[in-house]
Design a protein around this nucleic acid. Structure first.
Lengths: 135, 135
DNA sequence: CTTAGCTCCGTACTCAAGTACGGAGTCAAG
DNA sequence: CTTGACTCCGTACTTGAGTACGGAGCTAAG
């Protein structure tokens, strides 16, 4: 292994995850991340799983999940109360699919716009408005 | 026509669009919507295009566009400076496609989770973490 | 052993996207 | 012509997601 397996300080962790140190601390306050107990009078150390978690949070967030929703997703992690977790996942799935549908429409419209743009010699009457109205 | 063609008050407009009156006013302040000039000493009236615009804003927003980005999208509406508009649209398209990719992965993972959940007799070690890490 | 550059912690500030509020004007129905 | 609902407008508050700050306490390198 080249990467520090279990020895990152908060600064290194933040750097590796591409976020601000304060952001890590913020997530800890929000209980989205554990804060490793520190060797009495010392400085906390983080490992790969912590890095993974920050990345997870950021990914989910980029998809439009709020931190509260991310917290829900993270609760799915421990296999306990399986049926509840499943219901949760199903709800999120529906959610995600709705988003996908919307995004695909927008993709189509944008694609169309890009293609037709300038084609008609300066005659662009943007079709997005129409396309998005029925949403 | 059954719908009031061009005679909505701000309250009716907001209602029709499913938003708060204050939200309309907020959008006006942000220049996302025009405010129709009011008959001297009177009350402003809104028409279908205004309704369409609110819906557009809300739709784009649901897809994760910020109000500033929505403003950009709306600038595409008038066909002027076509090349600029096209570049704009292309950037947004790339953006949208990145989102789509992410969302599809999440969809797959969630689907998988739902399917396998409870299958292994209470053994759910959520695979989302792994799946999202490489994002 | 000192010191620069961390970490830790609390508190406070910022920014986006609204929401709420309160007084004054308007308008339509009784 | 008054009353109740609604508009207009400014200002202020809220919530989510961080950022910034400042005084401590560590700790590794010279």
């Amino acid at each position: 292994m080249n990467e520090p397996a279990d020895a990152m300080t908060i600064g290194v962790l933040a750097e590796a995850a591409g976020v601000n140190v304060e952001t890590i601390r913020f997530y800890q306050r929000k209980k989205l991340m554990r804060e490793p107990d520190r060797p009495p009078g010392g400085i906390r150390r983080y490992g790969e799983p912590d890095l993974a978690r920050v990345r997870f949070i950021k990914s989910a967030q980029r998809l439009g999940f709020s931190l509260d929703e991310v917290a829900d997703l993270l609760k799915l992690e421990d296999g306990s109360h399986c049926t509840e977790a499943r219901a949760q996942a199903e709800r999120k799935l529906a959610d995600v699919r709705a988003r996908l549908t919307d995004l695909r429409r927008i993709e189509g419209v944008l694609q169309d716009l890009v293609q037709r743009c300038c084609a008609a010699d300066g005659e662009v009457r943007c079709p997005m408005i129409r396309a998005l109205q029925g949403a």
